[in-house]
Amino acid sequence: MKTILKYFLCVLVVVVGFDLLLGFVAKRYVTTHILPGDYQAIDYLINRSNEECLIIGSSLAINSLMPSLMEDSLGMTCYNGGANAQSMPYFETMLDCVFRRYTPKMVIFVLDPNELSRKGLGQRYNVLVPYYGCGHELIDRNLESKDAVEPWLLRSASYRYNRIWWRILLYHFIGYSNKSDKGFVPHERPMSLPMLKTIQNEDTVQACVDSFVRCMTICNDRGVKVVCVFPPGYYSPVNGAFQSVNVVEEECLKINAVCIDDSQDSTFLEHPEWFYDNKHFNIDGSVIYTKQFLQELKAHSQTQQ
């Protein structure tokens, strides 16, 4: 019995001790360093951005719109705040964090044609875990909403920094080369895939639609010009418009926002060399699409005037 007590007590002390130590070190690191990878964009949006035009979206945003090309045409500073594998709850959170510090003049949402069909917070919302308990109510609320046990688990540093410490450690020691140009990440890779033929028009999810409507409302209340854009992909066209596109168009109409739907632009289907996979542009495609987007935006603005 004595051995059991010794063993389990020792296990408990080491686990709790390490958890506290990890929590202390990691929190200090997060507040004194800019984390690498996706966190650069997250950290920039949450703490330091001051651009007049912000691009919000997933990897579609990162690889589609080039801020350096857009700045002259728009006549305002621009930053691409896209983050890999994110969805509406993340976009709403970023918007909330930015608006707590300042109000940009324009927000561009780069959306997937099935963007409003995503359920839940998205598989990578937990990248925001290092910012838990740092005064961002929406982040705290969303992370805790997972289930009843989650708020308790989030008290553990090992859980909070689960798998995130690895990126910090890896990039801290082997370095991280920031390849982004104002958030835009150019991809030189050539296309190696055939046209995707399995894309479907998915039903929208109400929670996701609500989140999008809240984003639009916040922007409208603050007088921010909103542009929603669906970039083209290298996939077979579907019959009619995507449900998500329809909903976004309706919401844009309500607040006089611009909606550009290029999701089924046939020109791009003839140029697989502009993509590096079925949904993402390589650098050539990004340049071509950014220019096309700017022209379309100009045309929309003239029509509205």
């Binding site: 010794k6 063993y7 389990f8 020792c10 296990v11 408990l12 002390v13 080491v14 686990v15 390490f18 958890d19 990890l22 553990s156 090992s158 859980y159 920094y161 689960n162 798998r163 410490w165 690895w166």
Partner: peptide, 13 residues
């Protein structure tokens, strides 16, 4: 015990 605890920590992180 310390090895077991470290393994638990590896699992947690």
């Amino acid at each position: 015990a310390v090895s077991s605890a470290l393994m638990i920590i590896v699992i947690a992180v």
